[in-house]
């Protein structure tokens, strides 16, 4: 094989790898919070207080981070396919949207629970989405 042919072949191979990588990245499913490494461990009360006292600071500390939150359940709501578990956080709460498939191990009001999910900020409560229940003991 001549040197020129080798270079063409290497170039074509590189293009193929680049196209394949691009295609893979474009179609890559969203990384769920459950399969991501936990960034922060915190209680629901501490998390709510962090946002209530200094939202800007809390945004940079917790938003877009995977957190494990421990707290007492104050409400469990099922609407269609959506399930939400609200944790007591003092004056407000931590609202966790639970992923489908967790129905069997949903906690009851008053129970203590550890939930892992993506923190997205604060509306009325601190928002956690893509959440799974680690344990409800």
């Amino acid at each position: 094989m001549t040197r020129r042919k080798l270079i063409i072949l290497a170039g074509a191979l590189l293009c193929l790898i680049a196209a394949g990588t691009g295609y893979y990245l474009y179609n890559k499913p969203r990384t769920t919070a459950a399969e991501s490494r936990t960034d922060k461990h915190i209680s629901a009360q501490q998390l709510y207080e962090a946002f209530a006292s200094n939202e800007q600071q809390a945004n940079s500390n917790y938003v877009n981070k995977v957190v494990e939150v421990k707290g007492t359940v104050t409400d469990v709501q099922k609407t269609g396919t959506s399930i939400s578990v609200l944790l007591a956080g003092g004056a407000g709460g931590v609202n966790c949207s639970i992923v489908p498939g967790e129905e069997k191990q949903l906690p009851k009001v008053g129970e203590s629970v550890l939930i892992k999910g993506l923190c997205t900020g604060m509306l009325m409560d601190v928002s956690i989405v893509d959440a799974t229940i680690i344990n409800n003991k």
């Binding site: 990245l25 474009y26 179609n27 890559k28 499913p29 969203r30 990384t31 938003v63 877009n64 949207s97 997205t120 900020g121 604060m122 509306l123 928002s127 989405v129 893509d130």
Partner: peptide, 16 residues
């Protein structure tokens, strides 16, 4: 109504 934009979940990581 009010909502957080980051609460929208997409099927693909890049879209998100």
């Amino acid at each position: 109504f009010t909502l957080l934009q980051r609460n929208f979940l997409f099927p693909k990581q890049l879209m998100q």
